[in-house]
């Protein structure tokens, strides 16, 4: 059960810690979804082609970082609305995956892993667990983390100190690209295949976890665990009380919504005192 929760949580943790950096810089990153999708696709395709899981992982990271860079270019260089460029990035990821799956894999659709990538899913979970202290340290104790936060809170202060916020915005989006690429690979590794719509809203849940965790890595991490637990619990109850699978899918969202509501109500009450 616990193991299942952590394995379920792995892609959420990876993506939301990545998204946390962009969020701290003040950019609403809705492209996590597309980054995960494109990462999962290339992880399977390249590992199948080369027989190397490491190369598959690298390809996943490269593809999703490239997508992040394109988003960053339009959002920051050309000051496009970041929500729209995020939507565009998700569309682009979806389109590219469809195109390449028809070109590279005849027939498209589900691509089964031909390597032992499924065995590597432990690695991803360990990596996600290590990411918590690492990100906590970077965000609170290094100049990089501090400047990311300043970029989101007060651009003017950075200007006065002769620091360009753009450097931090670009690199933060790149970090989210790298981590979402790994998140995608971890998802594909767990299933042992690429299926269309493999990310199925996980990027959005990662974004929810960032807000639910009030932009603090430790709380973001816990939010991911919460959502993964809700998902595991839902699957577990399904076996017991025979609730239909489709309605079970709604449960994690409703549980997260309830927790968010309770947390904010408690916060409001304590603030008033």
């Amino acid at each position: 059960m616990i193991e299942d929760i952590f394995k379920t949580a792995t892609p959420y943790i990876l993506a939301s810690i990545g998204g946390l950096f962009t969020e701290l810089c003040g950019s609403l990153n809705i492209a996590l979804e597309g980054q995960i999708l494109i990462g999962a696709f290339w992880a399977i395709v390249v590992s199948n082609m080369t027989g190397s899981i490491v190369l598959g992982l690298l390809a996943a990271v490269a593809a999703s970082s490239l997508l992040a860079l394109i988003t960053a270019l339009f959002s920051f260089r050309f000051r496009a609305n970041i929500f729209i460029s995020g939507l565009a990035a998700n569309l682009l990821a979806y389109g590219l995956v469809t195109v390449f799956s028809t070109i590279l894999v005849k027939g498209g659709g589900v691509i089964r892993a031909e390597t032992a990538i499924q065995g590597s899913s432990y690695f991803f979970t360990v990596f996600a667990l290590l990411l918590l202290p690492l990100s906590w340290y970077v965000i609170n104790y290094t100049p990089y983390g501090m400047r990311c936060r300043v970029a989101g809170l007060s651009e003017a202060v950075l200007y006065y100190r002769g620091i360009s916020p753009d450097f931090y915005r670009y690199t933060a989006l790149l970090i989210s690209g790298v981590l979402c690429g790994i998140a995608g690979a971890s998802l594909a590794a767990r299933i042992g295949a690429f299926v269309p719509n493999i990310s199925s809203g996980r990027g959005w849940i990662a974004l929810v976890a960032i807000y639910l965790g009030y932009r603090k890595p430790q709380w973001v991490f816990l939010s991911c665990i919460l959502f993964a637990s809700a998902e595991s619990l839902a699957n577990w109850t399904q076996g017991f009380i025979g609730m239909p699978a489709t309605v079970i899918l709604a449960l994690p969202y409703l549980i997260t919504l309830s927790v968010l509501t309770i947390v904010s109500a408690v916060r409001k009450k304590t603030e008033q005192r």
């Binding site: 104790y141 100049p143 501090m146 202060v157």
Partner: peptide
Amino acid sequence: PGIVPGFSILDNIIIGKEGKCFQKI
């Protein structure tokens, strides 16, 4: 003057002069 909300006076002073990118402040 503009300051970073939620940051201590100390942190507000050292922003930009905290050290190397990923070294501990």
